[in-house]
Design a binder for these strands. Structure first.
Lengths: 75, 75
DNA sequence: CACCATTTGTTCGTATGTATG
DNA sequence: GCATACATACGAACAAATGGT
């Protein structure tokens, strides 16, 4: 259960935190799960997925490539 | 500064008036600025942007197309 | 080259909860 | 109580880029 609907923390922040942790653990060798996969895994809408990803992009943790996916920045 | 927060006129009506004027001046060859752009330009929330646009729609000045934008009616 | 599936990007439509005057 | 406004979320449609067939 990635998202806790009973938590006072907004879902997009919960997801961002989850992905941040997965990245820190080196869970992603390739691209992150696609928006559609994350929609399925979390039950959230695409807009919220995108919003969570944007948080990580703004943090400089990942970058996105249209038509490819979301990738972890190296370095 | 599109919106004057010190004005007694409601923000959504200020924005509607502003857009009406821009349209009258032929400022928009293509679609109007997107909701997101208007959020940035005005500091208002999306709901208020939408409300201002709805005023113009009800006036028959513009029409909206989901996924495309807001367009000025010709004629 | 054309076509298609996948994936991210953009945009409007609607609903809900909270806060303020 | 009500109207206004803000923030979040979900839904739908359209667009663009990529990669494979």
């Amino acid at each position: 259960m990635i998202i806790d609907p009973t938590s006072p923390v907004h879902p997009y922040l919960q997801l961002a935190a989850h992905l941040r942790e997965q990245i820190a653990n080196g869970a992603y060798t390739g691209p992150l799960p696609s928006y559609e996969e994350l929609v399925s895994q979390t039950g959230l809408s695409k807009g919220v997925i995108q919003r969570a990803i944007k948080v990580l992009v703004d943090e400089g943790l990942v970058f996105t490539v249209q038509g490819r996916g979301v990738f972890v920045k190296k370095g």
